[in-house]
Simulated scan of single mutants.
Amino acid sequence: MNRPSELGFIAMPGARSLAYLQTLRQRNYKPACVVRLKNPYAENATSFLQSHPLAAQYIDASLDEYSFCRSTDIPLYDTEFTSINDEGLLDLLLSTGIHTWLFSGGGIIKPALFDAGLRFLHIHPGQLPEVRGSTCFYYSLLHDNSLAATAFFMTAELDAGEPLMCRHFAINMAEPLLSCSFIDYVVDPWIRAQTLNSLLLQWSSFGAAIPAPTPPPPLISSPSDRPCYVMHPLLRALTIHKLSKRFDPKRPIGVHHFDRSN
């Protein structure tokens, strides 16, 4: 798949952007360009990825937008924008002539960007439409030990786009290797990137309207009938404790694909 693409990449520096860049490199998929936003907290993710003994198995912390674009010879727009909605970013996106963008963070997209005819590919950390919200994977893990990521094109309504690809995963780890930081900086971006990888394998062109895959098996139950956003630190700690209690030393340690249909 070493060819120009109809897909541009809006990179919010951090663990998720690194995981997506790694997937694009592994698939030999060259976006048409990369628009790099500015994230003042990106160093937090990089520091953790460099210090955790298992992180390198999932995300290459030495990769960044600059080295990726140099090695692939694609344009890089290095901006000072800190939000997807910052004034001027829309003009930049339109000036590229690219209408389909891989989104890696930067806030909730305002209607003006959709009204401009742009579409944004997002990988959500939960099975849609059943599990919505930014931290829903914590709620799912606490609720029934389920973990998933879904690719979809975003709409003005949050987490309401038609699912394109859904992958399920399982965690087999114990404390102290397993922590909230590991969930945030490794598990979350990695499962999204793996779902992106599956989508890249299936799609030959992001410019065409391609039918969605067969919907995944339904969840046993949803953790909430409302979107799952802010989670209390005590519930996060309880989630980690519950996962650690499930640790099976006879199984491979880490995060793995899981087929819910079996």
Rank of each mutant, 00 (worst) to 15 (best):
L219N: 01
G8W: 02
S204A: 09
T79L: 06
G107C: 01
N172A: 00
P249T: 11
A237R: 12
L93G: 00
D86L: 01
F81Y: 05
H257D: 15
R3K: 10
Y29K: 08
F103D: 12
E175K: 08
T79M: 06
E80K: 09
D91K: 15
F103G: 09
S146C: 10
R226N: 10
D225H: 15
S261A: 09
S146G: 08
S224L: 05
T72L: 12
P129K: 10
N145G: 10
A19G: 01
I59R: 00
D225L: 13
L21K: 00
E162C: 11
E157L: 10
A56R: 15
M1C: 10
L21G: 00
I98V: 13
S62H: 06
S47N: 15
R36C: 07
G254S: 10
T79G: 04
V255I: 13
D184E: 12
L102S: 00
Y41L: 14
S5P: 02
N145F: 13
N197W: 07
P75M: 01
P163Q: 12
L63N: 12
V186K: 02
L63A: 14
M12Q: 08
Q22G: 03
Y58D: 04
L24F: 01
L24P: 00
S51H: 09
W203A: 02
A45W: 04
M154L: 07
G97V: 09
Y229M: 12
L49Q: 06
A212P: 03
S244I: 03
R36S: 07
L92W: 05
Q194R: 14
